[in-house]
Amino acid sequence: MRMIKIILLSLTMMISTQVTGQSSGLSITGGLGTYDMSDFKYYHDVILDRMPVDVKAGKYFPAYTNFKINLLRKKSEKIRYGILYGYSTTGAHANYTDYSGYINFDQIVTAHQVGLNIYYSLVKVANIDISAYGDLKLSYINDEVNLLVKTNYYFNNSNIKFNAISPFAESGLEAIVNLKKASIGIEGGFLHDFSRVMDTDDALTADALVNMSATEEIQSGMSGLRVGLKAIFWLSQSP
């Protein structure tokens, strides 16, 4: 709770500062994230065990899309800071198909993050800049679970949602090449999810083929590595 208050307070302070003045810019980082999701994997297996047939699991929460948009301001040659929006998604899929019909069991996890970040330049050689960065974010995590069963005489489509708001912290390195009005480069680091218990509404699963409720609490657990390509568009350069 304390972490959430710190992030909210910092966000308010950041937003109230001018970001469109001199030495401000917009950066877009897009790439992949890995995700721990151990509780979600366990939940996936529990549901599959309840199926009347041998439903095969595919990929369990693999490395998938992760990107962030950052409004930033250069405080000095060494320090940049800003506010950011981040987005991550992953999921799990299981299927059983025979001549009579099929079962699809899917989880799609998305995380929308807002927060603030700071970059500190470590090395600058010519127009190449290597910086360390840190992000503090609040994330709304949503897991949409869908169980679809379809045969000629039986059809059932059941959904259940889990969601939580969890604080994230990320740190890593950025290497960029500074061009005239933009910078391009790569960025990578580790994101730590402080993990919160996912809330749900079990009532939605009353008519499902199998009981879709979790036997134990599910923690958000989106920790993992983040890597991506980055582009910074300088809205205005320092003189």
Partner: peptide, 29 residues
Amino acid sequence: MKILTLLSVILFIPSCYYNDMEVYEVDIT
């Protein structure tokens, strides 16, 4: 150009969901 880039990214967000359609076919005898 900057607005266009930002706009394309925003439009990209809703389509960016995890998607896996793999099928595990079982032969019934």
